[in-house]
Amino acid sequence: MTFRQRVALAWRLLRPFTLTASIVPVLIGSALAFGQNRFRTSVFLAFLIASMLIQAATNMFNEYFDHRRGLDTKEMVGIAGTIVHDGVAPRKVLMTAWSFIAISVALGVFICVMSSWWVALVGVLCLAVAYFYSGGPKPLAYTPFGELAASVAMGPVIVLLAYYVQASDITTRAVMVSLPIGLLIGAILLGNNIRDMDQDKLGGRRTIPILFGRERGRRLFAGVFILSYILVLILIATGLLTIWALLVLLTIPSAVYVVRLYYRFSEPVQLHPAVKGTAVLLFRFGVLLFVGMLVGTFVPLQV
């Protein structure tokens, strides 16, 4: 295998587009702290890298345990499957995941030294979600609580942690701003599970789309997008965000496009672009909100 092939394989193993769910919450939490002049670059970078490593490790745990349970096959659609498609040894995937966790723990120690050791308690809970999402006797991914766990752990929890390690505080504003981010992260998992629901049924999963049915799952998916935009408008109307946060409305065409894909298609191969589109939408939404919050710090226009 050439060096280029090895790099491409490692890239697929990381599932890069899913890393938006680990980047955006850190950006939003850090923007909140920056607005209060409580931003430290070293803590920001350490937290961002740790968050990305934990997300990547979660992806690897998912691939390893899905392979062990026989859920991943060569016919599967998606960005997982380096084990079944590329012949990567399962143990190698698992060991890489644990090495990423070890590095994130080391970064976590630095973050605690720079902020508070209470952060370690929440960090351990996040690591538990990362492992038990796919691992353990009753993985969260096999229950209707997978989307909820990911939405909370990767949304509000990471946003609030990223804010707390900088500002040493938790505010109502931070909690409220974290909500649309959590919803869109949950939408990535929900969309993924809508795409894979037929295969997941065979694997014994009981995800939300399987319990609700495809049509109700589509409605819930669209409703999550609508609620995310409504929350931003409410935050602006109540003064918790400035009018610059309206920048996120530029992503509405992308949201409409993704939702239409879910209503138009049901085959996994046709829905895979929609899953990627949801992750890209989260990134665009998050970056525009981040920019809007930073600009609002210097030009605080209110409605």
Rank of each mutant, 00 (worst) to 15 (best):
R216D: 15
R68Y: 11
F17S: 14
V248T: 15
S22G: 15
R260P: 09
S178F: 06
F110Q: 01
H67M: 06
V291C: 02
H272G: 09
T242E: 03
V113H: 07
T96P: 08
Y263D: 08
P16I: 00
G155R: 01
S104A: 12
G146R: 09
V248A: 10
L227V: 15
I252R: 05
S228T: 03
K92D: 14
M52Q: 12
L183W: 01
N37W: 07
R214C: 02
W117P: 02
P137C: 03
L189N: 02
T171S: 14
P209N: 09
H85E: 13
M176N: 06
P180M: 07
L161F: 13
R68C: 08
L189M: 09
C112E: 11
G81S: 09
C126G: 15
H67F: 13
T172Y: 14
V77M: 02
V248S: 10
G292F: 01
T2V: 02
G29R: 11
F34C: 07
G217P: 08
L13N: 06
Q166V: 00
V295Q: 08
P90Y: 01
A222R: 15
I23F: 05
L190C: 09
P300W: 04
S178K: 04
Q270G: 00
A150P: 13
G87M: 03
S228G: 05
V152M: 04
V88C: 00
A97P: 06
V152W: 06
G29W: 09
F221C: 00
S266T: 10
V280D: 11
L148G: 08
Q302Y: 07
A128L: 15
V259N: 10
A245S: 12
N192V: 02
L241W: 07
I158L: 13
F265V: 00
G191H: 04
L45P: 10
A89T: 07
V159R: 12
A128G: 14
S168H: 13
N62V: 01
R260F: 04
W118A: 00
T172S: 15
I103A: 12
V119H: 03
I210N: 10
I79Y: 04
G70C: 02
A56I: 01
A141D: 13
A153Y: 05
V26W: 00
T41E: 14
A149D: 14
G155I: 03
F100D: 12
L211Y: 08
S30L: 06
L13Q: 09
W244F: 08
R91G: 08
G186F: 08
V287D: 08
F225T: 08
L220N: 14
L14Y: 03
C126N: 15
G213Q: 05
F44L: 09
Y164M: 12
V77A: 01
V165D: 11
D198S: 12
G204H: 06
V7N: 02
G35Y: 10
G296T: 12
L183T: 02
F44T: 11
F34S: 10
R260N: 15
N193C: 08
R4K: 13
E215L: 08
P268H: 07
T73I: 04
M60A: 03
L241R: 05
A120Y: 06
R12S: 11
L247Y: 12
R40W: 08
S30T: 04
F290N: 01
F3A: 09
W11D: 13
I236D: 09
T172V: 12
A255V: 03
T143F: 00
I226V: 14
L48E: 07
I194M: 14
P156Q: 12
T143N: 07
L294K: 05
S30D: 15
P144H: 01
V159E: 13
M176G: 00
